[in-house]
């Protein structure tokens, strides 16, 4: 695996005091879908802005495609695509005109561009709307146009900043499909940020959990979930008898908690432990009326590594203010 994005001790300080990115180090391998997961204001967009040459870092080292981002920004710009958080497609041009403009800006030969535009518009299912003004598009259509714009010059790395922010569930799923298709059909590296847990979980090969400008954890979604220490089997057993001890005796059971007639059993591997556990209970004369297996989700992972749930982090006012301050800086 060769690293296509290399970040070492990256720090970005705004206004001399707000440490938006506070010394992060990570590598992204070629062909990987890498995700930054964190609440608003965690430093995700700032990291993208530095990597896409829009922002000067305070200190640290950043390389994209083996090129130093601050030393040779134009070379970096040529090999990357950016789909920003805001809708930046031009309302007063048609979808196709937007694509042609983008192709020109990225120096794509017009003949090649025309073919690719047809191809890309078909990919994001906009061929019928291609010659309509973008102002008549829905939010999802704009975002899809934005995505296809980012692909016009076949970048080696595609940066997606909150690709599904503000989209409805159905459109979000379509966007996910597009991103999955990209991955399947090319060796393009995708670096994305999101604050949707399910998005990170279902799309990314590896996830960096970022909070307050620091990476709290970085691994594959499966490993991150495993690191929480196992699955939970919930059981309901009829009758008054206490089955705590028999349950504990089953191999693989880590702990048992009993509340009235229901048990929460923490086990190492839910799939292999469930059957022996049920057998043991029926052997002791218990009859199980309800069973469910819960695997840890990204929400629990986030909670584990940052000490707060993602929703809490989103709601904390000071973070929103900082995020707003950053947003203002960013747009300047």
């Amino acid at each position: 695996m060769t690293a296509i994005i290399e970040v070492k001790d990256l720090v970005k300080v705004y206004n001399g005091s707000i440490r938006a990115v506070d010394g992060i180090t990570f590598d992204v391998a070629e062909g990987e879908v890498f995700g930054f997961l964190g609440p608003n204001g965690a430093g995700k967009t700032t990291t993208i802005a530095v990597l896409t040459t829009l922002l000067q870092k305070t200190s640290g080292e950043c390389k994209v495609c083996d090129i130093d981002v601050s030393k040779h920004p134009t070379e970096v710009r040529r090999s990357i695509g950016l789909v920003p958080q805001e809708m930046t497609v031009d309302d007063d041009l048609t979808g196709r005109e937007n694509m042609i403009l983008q192709a020109t800006l990225y120096g794509v030969d017009m003949k090649v561009a025309k073919e690719r535009i047809t191809e890309l518009l078909a990919l994001v299912k906009l061929e019928e709307a291609a010659d309509r003004m973008v102002k008549t598009y829905s939010g999802g259509m704009r975002k899809r146009l934005e995505l296809s714009e980012g692909l016009i010059h076949r970048p080696r790395v595609l940066f997606l900043d909150e690709p599904t922010l503000g989209l409805d569930i159905q459109t979000r799923t379509t966007m996910w499909d597009h991103i999955r298709d990209l991955r399947k059909n090319s060796n393009m590296t995708v670096f994305m940020t999101t604050h949707y847990l399910e998005e990170a979980d279902s799309l990314c090969d590896r996830i960096g959990i970022i909070d307050k400008g620091k990476i709290m954890a970085l691994d594959t979604p499966i490993k991150l979930k495993e690191s929480l220490g196992g699955d939970v089997i919930s059981l309901k057993i009829s009758g008054e008898m206490d089955f705590t001890e028999p349950i504990k005796s089953v191999e693989g059971v880590l702990s048992v908690k009993k509340e009235d007639g229901s048990y929460r059993v923490k086990v190492f591997n839910g799939e292999t432990v469930t059957a022996p556990l049920l057998q043991e209970i029926s052997k002791r004369g218990g009859s199980v009326t309800y069973v469910s297996l819960e695997r840890p989700n990204m929400d629990q992972v986030f909670l584990e590594y940052t000490g707060r749930s993602l929703r809490d982090a989103e709601q904390s006012g000071s973070f929103d203010r900082m995020a707003a301050a950053r947003q203002m800086r960013r747009s300047s």
């Binding site: 070379e75 710009r77 920003p84 805001e86 800006l105 747009s331």
Partner: peptide, 15 residues
């Protein structure tokens, strides 16, 4: 253009 992020898009382009 600044407000809608178009300016940033231009700044990210190799022009």
């Amino acid at each position: 253009d600044r407000r809608f992020g178009f300016l940033n898009k231009l700044r990210a382009a190799p022009i």
